[in-house]
């Protein structure tokens, strides 16, 4: 198993594997997106309380899930990079950041849009949205650090370290924000009423969540492939690849 993983971590093998996987991920993402959007936007019945505005959930909720999930992926790869010095892990972590930040941004914007019909205002310092906002700042800091350091090796180690420090602090931030929120506005309506969700609404939501995950993998593979070619541009296998094209 470990040997197999190590082999996978070799740039050339990773590149070839990524190239072969990309179409699969591309088509399945498209398929699930179409199905999920159809199910969510057209088939699912309107909410008895919120009417049609609840449908924004099909973007908001998966995006919010992804924003947290991707940060965990980044932290995991950062640890792998620091411990085993596997370059692929650094690349995967660094290219994930922009996608994670985008999902966080989408979650924030859709959250605000959803807030307007729900609360009558775009922003009410809801606990989940506030912690999404802080997460966005953390993403931006991580990306800012990576682009501020010129030497690639130094940038890789610094970012990995920062990601690990932040992953320890993020749960503390998250729970402190929730705690703060319950103190100040315990009576506010929560946008997500977990128990009240109907199966006909839930299935498209889960489909969308899977579609978002596949989309993430797809974009990571594409960006990692490009980044890998750039970093390995002096090596023989890349030169051969260029000559073949």
């Amino acid at each position: 198993m470990l040997q197999w993983l190590h082999k996978l971590a070799s740039p050339k093998i990773f590149y070839n594997l990524a190239s072969r996987l990309i179409p699969w991920f591309g088509w399945s993402t498209l398929l699930l997106l179409v199905y999920g959007l159809y199910g969510g936007l057209i088939e699912a019945p309107a909410d008895y309380q919120q009417g049609d505005s609840f449908r924004i959930m099909y973007i908001h909720v998966p995006a919010a899930w992804m924003s947290m999930f991707i940060y965990l992926v980044i932290a995991f790869h950062s640890a792998v990079f620091l411990i085993w010095k596997i370059t692929i892990s650094d690349i995967l972590a660094r290219v994930s950041a922009l996608i994670g930040a985008s999902f966080t941004f989408i979650a924030l914007v859709t959250g605000c849009l959803w807030g307007k019909p729900m609360w009558g205002t775009y922003w009410i310092w809801d606990a989940r949205l506030t912690s999404e906002l802080l997460l966005l700042f953390i993403y931006l800091g991580y990306m800012g650090l990576g682009s501020a350091i010129e030497d690639r090796r130094v940038a890789a180690r610094a970012c990995a370290l920062l990601a690990i420090v932040c992953v320890v602090i993020i749960p503390i931030i998250h729970y402190s924000v929730i705690w703060w929120n319950t103190l100040h506005q315990g009576s506010s309506v929560s946008v997500m009423n977990k128990s009240a969700i109907d199966t006909s609404m839930l299935i498209p939501l889960l489909v969308m969540a899977i579609a978002f995950k596949l989309f993430y993998v797809l974009v990571v593979l594409m960006r990692a492939r490009t980044e890998l070619l750039f970093q390995e541009r002096k090596t023989n296998w890349v030169r051969k690849l260029i000559q073949e094209k």
């Binding site: 700042f137 953390i138 931006l140 800091g141 800012g144 920062l162 602090i169 402190s176």
Partner: peptide, 10 residues
């Protein structure tokens, strides 16, 4: 500032 202020929130 960007790196540490969010971490100060708790």
């Amino acid at each position: 500032t960007l790196l540490i202020l969010p971490l100060y929130t708790p």
